[in-house]
Each structure stands twice: as C-alpha cells, then as structure tokens.
Simulated scan of single mutants.
Amino acid sequence: MIKLQTPTEKIGGVPLTNHMLLAAGVLGTTAASLSRMLRLGAGGVITKSIGPEPKDGHHGPSLIPVSGGILNAMGLPNPSQEFTGEIAPLLAENAPVVISIFGGTPAEFAKVAGWFPDAPAFELNLSCPHAEGYGAAIGANPRVVRECTEAVKAFGKPVWVKLTPNVADIGVIGRAAEEGGADAIVAINTVKAMRISTGMRRPVLGNKFGGLSGTAVFPIAVRAVYDLYEACTIPVIGCGGISTADNVLEMMMAGAAAVEIGSAVYDNINVFADIAEDLYAPNGIPAGELVGCAHD
C-alpha cells in the first residue's frame, strides 16, 4: 500500500499533525473529549456545531445503528455561547481545533463566530439535513452559502464550509463558498434517510427523518469530493464513511487534501492511530503527489 509523509504545510489554513480530523458532532462537546481524541491520534478536531441560541435537539430516539452505518436526528443540540468557556482552555494551548458553527442567516453566523476570537478556524455547518431553518435548509442556496461564508470570513480566520450531498449539483454550492472566501470545502454531511419499525408501524427516529453516516455513504462522499475538485480551486476535505487507510488514499485520489472521520470512532476509539500506522512512513511520498491523481 502507498505510504505518505505527514503534512508539513497548513491545510485550509490550519496546521494539522496528520491528514485526519475528528468530524463535527462526535465527542466534540467538551474540551476534555476533544483533547482525548488529539492524544489518540487525530491530526485536528472539529467541535460540536454551536448556534446562536441554546438547543435541546430532537426528542429520542435520536441515534440508531443500521446496516452499514448510523442513522441520526440530533437536531443540533448545543449550549450556544456557554461553549466559549468550555473550549477556552484547549484554544489557549494552540491545539488544531476548528469551531463548527451554524445559524439561520449570515448575521447569525457572524454573531456566533464573534464569540470565538481565539479560534484557529471555523467550519460552517450548512449541511445538517434534519434541523429546520438551519444546515441544508439554507445550504442548498448558493447565494446564502456565499453570504454566510463572507460574513464569517470577515473575522480574518480560515473558514471551512461543510456541504450537503442532498443537492442537484454540489459543484455549484462549492463554487459559491469559494466565491465567499472559503479556505476549504468539507464534503459531505449525512445523507437524508429514514427507517420504519414494521413491528411498531412507525419511524424509528423521534424526528421521523434523519441523516445516514458510516461506510454506506463512502461512495457518495468520494463522488462529491471528485466533483468539487473539478469545480473548485480551494482544498477539499473528504468526509463520509472513512474507516481505513485505503479509504483515506481513495479520498485523496478523488481530490481530498485531508479527511474527517466520525462514525468509525463509535466502533474504534483508536481509529486515528490505527489508520496512521498503516498510512504513514518516514520514506512516504508527499500527499500532494496523490491528491487528485484520479483526474489525470
């Protein structure tokens, strides 16, 4: 298998210790859990998405394991501005932490970003498929994506924009983020999905509808990364169903400069270290030689 060198330059404006980040929404609600994932081998971490007002999220069941992945409808639960105190110690250590934020308008995105003056970077959640008025509900509109990106980029920090796969042309949305000043695009968030209990004759999720993550969505994510690499000039961060070193290499060949890993953590808390053992070697090749090679 191909072996890589660890990154020597910033990716999307963020200095990562390897090419793998903890995805938003997974063990991202406390500084302690984020620090733990960094110690366990993550090259960077994304926080839980923080919004303009505290939210309890959808009532349960909100997370159900299914064949090939996880079905969830969390509803963006978050402590809002109170999170600033929680994350402050980790930010003071200059750790590679990206603050995930959401809002319903560009002004709300700017409001939340303003709470984190020490954030190394922001990831804009314009892709959650099960939160009314947020995420994919506004992230399918190129104009809104561009304006939200511009609003947060005004703070002078690196801005990553996380996109939904639930659109006709993800390249159009990616270009809108790039036009708004994004430093990187993250693809993808979960895919719209649901399951119904035949015994109870009702949806298994409390919210009825949710988003599917895990290995089942990996081919969808690869296609999205491939399309975005063709459509945009800024780095693409691959996300969706990654659980092995070979998955990371495939994402890079499609065009990803780095990847985010989420669902695989549920099965293996040491997934970052395990992948790194297979992925890196002192005599490995620079990742730049691999990124996008499937387009040649």
Results as ranks from 00 to 15, higher is better:
Ala73Gln: 03
Leu249Pro: 03
Ser263Trp: 07
Pro219Lys: 06
Asp267Arg: 00
Asn125Trp: 06
Pro96Met: 14
Gly199Asn: 12
Ala73Trp: 02
Pro219Gln: 10
Glu230Ser: 08
Ala24Phe: 08
Gly75Pro: 04
Leu205Thr: 04
Leu4Cys: 04
Asn141Thr: 08
Ala254Glu: 12
Gly240Pro: 02
Ile99Phe: 05
Pro129Ile: 10
Pro89Lys: 09
Glu82Tyr: 00
Trp115Ser: 14
Asp118Tyr: 02
Val265Arg: 02
Gln81Leu: 12
Ile185Asp: 07
Asp246Pro: 00
Gly171Tyr: 02
Glu123Phe: 01
Gly114Val: 08
Leu76His: 01
Gly43Asn: 07
Val191Ala: 12
Val204Ala: 12
Ile101His: 00
Gly43Thr: 04
Val145Met: 05
Ile261Tyr: 03
Pro129Lys: 05
Gly262His: 11
Lys55Trp: 04
Glu9Cys: 07
Pro117Arg: 08
Leu76Ser: 03
Pro203Ala: 10
Phe116Arg: 06
Gly114Asn: 08
Ala151Ile: 04
Asn141Val: 07
His58Thr: 05
Ile242Gly: 00
Glu53Met: 10
Ser35Asp: 12
Gln5Met: 15
Thr164Arg: 07
Met74Leu: 15
Asn247Ile: 09
His130Met: 15
His19Tyr: 15
Gly68Tyr: 09
Ala281Ile: 08
Gly238Ser: 13
Thr105Phe: 02
Phe83Arg: 08
Asp169Gln: 09
Pro219Glu: 12
Pro282Ala: 03
Pro203Asn: 11
Gly104Ile: 08
Ala187Met: 05
Pro165Glu: 12
Tyr226Ile: 03
Tyr226Met: 11
Val186Ile: 13
Ile237Trp: 01
Ala113Ser: 05
Leu124Val: 13
Arg223Ala: 14
Gly25Cys: 10
Leu21Gln: 09
Ala92Trp: 00
Ala287Val: 13
Leu22Ala: 11
Ala151His: 03
His58Lys: 11
